[in-house]
Amino acid sequence: MGQPPINSTGEARTIPVIEARGVDHYYEGQGGWNHALSNLNLTIPHEEFLCIVGPSGCGKSTFLKIVMGLLKPMRGQVLLEGKPIEGPGTDRGVVFQEPALFAWRTVIENVEFGLQMQKVPKAEARRRAQEVLDVVGLGHVTDLYPYQLSGGMRARVAVARAWALRSANLLLMDEPFAAIDAINRMALQDYLVDTWMKDRRTVIYITHDIDEAVYLGDRILLMRPSPGRIGRFFEVNAPRPRDRSSAEFAELKGLITEEMHRFSSENTSIQEDAA
């Protein structure tokens, strides 16, 4: 991210899409409170593809839930384009870990859902949904019901449903392809990169797969567990589509993996000290 991103009218946008200030959150667990997020400060500029990786329990999903508006942090706040987040809304597109499609709606009706809630005229919603489904390669199955699709197709419908919202400048994805087998996952990642290149939005993408993070992200945030907090940022400058077999790719993957192991071994030693 060398120069500041420019919006359609040509002026540089100075307000970041997301600004998290001192976010703290706890969960009630066995034997007390789990510190899920500790003093998290994070700024995400426009049109950045940010990948968040980290071991389970590092608070990455908690942070995303806060940005989705489904969870209020106990301390601190998150600003969405300068305004505090009050609840869920169509100014963000979301993709969950499971596709969470509506079983009673056909593929195209699922994609239209958000547009329908925004009272977009029917014909226009249909056109938009068809357009997005074409991009993710599902233009031919618009009238099927979700149970008739494969897992990979369902994941693509979930992505399309979020992407169809024109009002959403920010897309939030919580391991959307985690349940897909490795070969199909790569194809899905290519669809996602393609879609993003054609229609750039800010993306926060959570994954536990380092390979996926390096393939997709402009910037990678590695989080540290217990309590969940910022670990380290990595920039990825390689042009897309990226070459998974290149030396730089492998090097960066190795670096992140190493750092992650260092973080988790620090944690074990802390726990051993305490015991």
């Binding site: 989705m68 508006g69 489904l70 609840g87 869920p88 809304g89 169509t90 963000r92 979301v94 969950f96 499971e98 969470a100 509506f102 859902f113 958000g114 809630m117 925004q118 449903r161 919202l165």
Partner: peptide, 14 residues
Amino acid sequence: INPLLVDAGRCFGA
């Protein structure tokens, strides 16, 4: 109801 479906509904403006 799967709470995720309700979350999805809310996130998409319902």
